[in-house]
């Protein structure tokens, strides 16, 4: 008797409607989950394929130098900011070290600020590097590699020149020279 009641319930139209609805909901949930996962993966792939920042407003950051001074890019509007990513273990960085110091020496009194960002480095070696190359412009570690990640750098050295209006004027991927930077600075200072 009981069994036949169960069987009759299972074959009733309302039971089949509920079961059908449950199946549909399950399918919708699985497909939604898969779609979310695919969208997430697509976004991550897109972000990784973007490459370094090339134009527009560069990502803002706050750098605390080895000597304890703090610089926030968005608060430096009105002056040209050169952002240089480097590391003590990086040989190409040594090729441009003297040129960057010369740029700082020649332009620091003309509203140009040069900031060195030390990427994935150890403090002692970084300080030795700065002392070896007589670097006097502000330098600080990229704590948590947050700044380099926001600029999506591919390696070091990389140099970014930010205009007085806070826009990216030029980026150099790989080592650069005094002449390359000076041309951009002169053009921006003449405006």
């Amino acid at each position: 008797m009981g069994m036949s009641r169960i069987n009759s319930t299972k074959t009733s139209p309302s039971y089949s409607i509920i079961r059908h609805a449950k199946d549909k909901l399950g399918q919708i949930a699985v497909w939604t989950l898969l779609a979310t996962l695919l969208v997430f993966l697509a976004i991550k792939l897109f972000q990784s394929s973007l490459g370094p920042v090339r134009s527009g407003t560069p990502p803002d950051f706050t750098l605390t130098t080895f000597s304890g001074q703090t610089y926030t890019l968005s608060e430096l509007k009105g002056q040209i900011v050169i952002v240089n990513f480097w590391a003590s273990w990086c040989d190409p960085c040594k090729a441009e070290a003297a040129d960057l110091e010369m740029i700082w020496h020649d332009y620091k009194d003309r509203d140009v600020l040069l900031l060195g960002i030390d990427y994935a480095d150890t403090k002692d070696e970084a300080l030795t590097y700065l002392s070896t190359w007589n670097i006097t412009y502000p330098n600080g570690p990229d704590v948590g590699t947050r700044i380099s990640q926001s600029y999506r750098i591919r390696g070091v050295p990389e140099t970014y020149i930010v205009t007085q209006d806070g826009l990216l004027a030029k980026s150099f991927i790989g080592p650069t020279s005094y002449e390359n930077i000076a041309v951009i600075l002169e053009a921006l200072l003449d405006k």
Partner: peptide, 23 residues
């Protein structure tokens, strides 16, 4: 180390990794 992706620090021979191991 972020410099040499997918290579653990103990197997990496770059200067960056040598410095990290010293640390």
């Amino acid at each position: 180390c972020p410099v040499c992706e997918s290579i653990p620090l103990d197997a990496c021979g770059t200067q960056a990794c040598i410095q990290w191991r010293d640390t």
